[in-house]
Write a protein that binds this DNA or RNA. Structure first.
Lengths: 199, 199
DNA sequence: GTCTATAGATGGATAGAC
DNA sequence: GTCTATCCATCTATAGAC
């Protein structure tokens, strides 16, 4: 699978992002200082301003990366999956889980520290989040129409599935369960939640 | 239901806790300053130290309150519920959801800012969290033994249910869905997840 | 681009009067 | 218990040399 490395810019800019990602995910945006980030990236704090105009701009790029990554994965999952609602939902949940297993820090920062961004910078991330939620609801609604699913409240099921996936970033550890195990099990749970028979 | 007011100490101490709860839940522990908290409580920052020896001690009390509240609710739910596994699981999930609807700020602080506590002060909260998780797993395992439930992985189901409940604190709004609606719907989802027929 | 040095603001916490 | 005043550390960000 793709590594975090491939998502980040090369050179110092990428090292700064990685350093900030690590510290933000552990201590939060306000709990990590410019000096901490610079030290973690192997530079002095003043040098950091040759690459980013402010601490908030670093966070903004991480939040953007995280939301774009997740939404891209979900879209691809639906496109590449079969045409049956069950296949589509399974692909969605699996991709959601796997993304959170692969990039837990990115998910944590994108979710926890979104509130530290200005409304303008947070807007696009919030929009992506809403689109992802809508994508899940569309797949569920389609399954209801075809008779594959039986769901009293699509919004609540989609919200529940989003909650399950998001939290994976906080507890996932490959020695506890493999990412594939979690992805498959959560996909089974999703099918049960929409009233679809699961083997 | 019980109000937040009844959980907090009286007088200035309680006002400080409420002020800190509001600010921590919105900006996080490091994003809210002693001066912010004091102003929100209607006192000067120096006065705050007549009631708490440090900012961390305020957080510690909030985190303790949040975890004790939730675990108490879950224990009571099982005790007061019927003897069938389905009734017990339904009661657990309903209590979990309702607690997060009633005290969303407390839940957010208890979960998000736990990492800002010293290991000693975080230990009891982590222990309570584990007990709550174990309680859910015990109920599920019991249902599996009686044949009421069919669950391939108890840990993952309990984790998924915990994730669903925890996230309620972030999105719940009474004008979107009532707490009772969310509680009942999530309880139905839980029964589906454990392979139990739901009306 | 990277550094040293520092400005200017804000942070948690304390001293001492009332 | 609450206040005013303040200490001192740390914060984000900038200036200017190389």
């Amino acid at each position: 699978m793709s590594e975090l490395q491939s998502l980040l810019p090369e050179g110092t800019r990428g090292r700064v992002l990685r350093a900030a990602l690590e510290l933000f995910s552990e201590y939060g945006f306000y709990g990590a200082s410019i000096r901490d980030i610079a030290a973690n990236a192997g530079i002095k704090s003043a040098t950091l301003y040759a690459h980013y105009p402010s601490k908030e701009h670093i966070l903004a790029e991480l939040v953007r990366l995280g939301h774009e990554l997740l939404y891209d994965r979900l879209r691809q999952a639906v496109v590449r999956s079969g045409s049956s609602p069950a296949d589509q939902l399974r692909a969605l949940v699996r991709s959601d889980v796997l993304a959170h297993c692969e990039f837990p820090q990115l998910a944590i920062v994108a979710n926890n520290d979104l509130h530290a961004l200005s409304p303008e910078q947070a807007a696009s991330a919030i929009a992506l989040r809403r689109q992802a939620h809508q994508l899940v609801m569309d797949v569920i609604d389609h399954g209801v129409k075809t008779g594959d699913f039986k769901v009293p409240d699509t919004f609540l099921v989609a919200t529940a599935l989003g909650s399950m996936g998001m939290r994976v970033a906080y507890w996932y550890h490959p020695e506890l369960k493999t990412a594939e195990q979690v992805a498959d099990s959560y996909a089974d749970l999703a099918l049960r939640m929409v009233g679809h028979p699961v083997p």
